[in-house]
């Protein structure tokens, strides 16, 4: 996809506002607080081989919220190519929901036909970017909706790289024509664990491609900051989000709380704060 075409696609996307990654415990509260949740991100993998009960849930959610699918296992960085069965199921789900965009990660979860069960970083090289671009082309044969790619956290940098993560992401976005789902928590965690300035990282990214943000709080473990989705968003992450919303035409932000789930009122407080930040920079109403 040409850069100009990609920019046209992403600038034309609707501003969704502020939402939450859907988790079952939120379901009742979500229906009671629809005014304060603009859209939901659903984990696509939960609905690919889902029992009827989950599909009814999906149908109910889709009738009341804009849903954005977030896939975990496409394994776009796999040099061996994509799992066609998985891709077909994912394509069916995305077509069914007809979302404004959908997302997966700049990572691999499968190697040599073995499912790793974890988002693993790839080597930051031109060859790895070409692999991702080739896989994205395969995806586009089945899915028309715009794809945005998410940065992940990593404990170690894969040896053999030719650039830093930010430069690699820029290369991937240029080659694929995809948008960026910038996980500001991941960015903050990586900057802490690997000792770089997140502002430099942000400046190196093509800001016009940043479509959506993820945010949440992690926790410290043995001197390492862990992306556990288990705590309220810390002030440092709010600062990253503020700067990103100021500099990029973000269309939506999602709070990704998975563990240690608090009362929904706390979730709403974080959403309200994120909404205010976006309004401050005119990203949404």
């Amino acid at each position: 996809m040409a850069a100009a075409e990609a920019e046209r696609v992403f600038s034309g996307l609707p501003a969704l506002g502020v939402g939450v990654g859907f988790r079952e415990p939120f379901r009742g509260d979500l229906f009671l607080q629809r005014d304060r949740v603009d859209f939901l991100e659903i984990t696509a993998d939960h609905y690919l081989d889902a029992p009827p009960e989950k599909l009814r849930e999906l149908e109910l959610l889709a009738e009341h919220f804009t849903l954005v699918p977030h896939a975990l296992n496409l394994s776009l960085a796999s040099a061996e190519g994509l799992d066609r069965d998985y891709l077909k199921k994912l394509a069916r789900l995305v077509r069914r929901l007809n979302p404004p965009w959908w997302s997966d990660h700049v990572a691999f979860t499968r190697a040599g036909g073995v499912d790793i069960g974890h988002l693993s970083p790839t080597v930051y090289s031109a060859e790895a970017a070409r692999v991702i671009a080739r896989n994205v082309e395969t995806v586009r044969e089945l899915i028309d909706a715009p794809l945005i790619l998410e940065n992940i956290t990593y404990m170690l940098t894969v040896p053999g790289g030719e650039s830093g993560e930010a430069e690699f992401l820029r290369d991937v976005l240029e080659r694929t024509g995809c948008g960026l789902l910038l996980d500001v928590t991941n960015l903050h965690i990586n900057s802490v664990n690997h000792g770089y300035d997140w502002r430099d990282f942000l400046r190196a990214l093509p800001s016009e491609r940043i479509v959506q943000l993820h945010f949440v709080g992690g926790h410290w473990h043995d001197g390492v900051l862990v992306d556990s989705h288990s705590h309220p968003t810390p002030e440092d992450v709010w600062a990253v989000m503020d700067e990103t919303l100021r500099s990029a035409p973000v269309k939506g932000v999602i709070l990704e709380r998975d563990e240690n789930i608090p009362p929904f009122s706390e979730i709403l407080r974080e959403l309200d704060r994120a909404r205010s930040l976006g309004r401050k920079y005119g990203r949404w109403d």
């Binding site: 988790r23 079952e24 415990p25 939960h46 998975d258």
Partner: peptide, 11 residues
């Protein structure tokens, strides 16, 4: 019974 998602949130 409610269904149980494969994610970390499971009721």
């Amino acid at each position: 019974g409610s269904s149980c998602s494969s994610g970390s949130s499971c009721g």
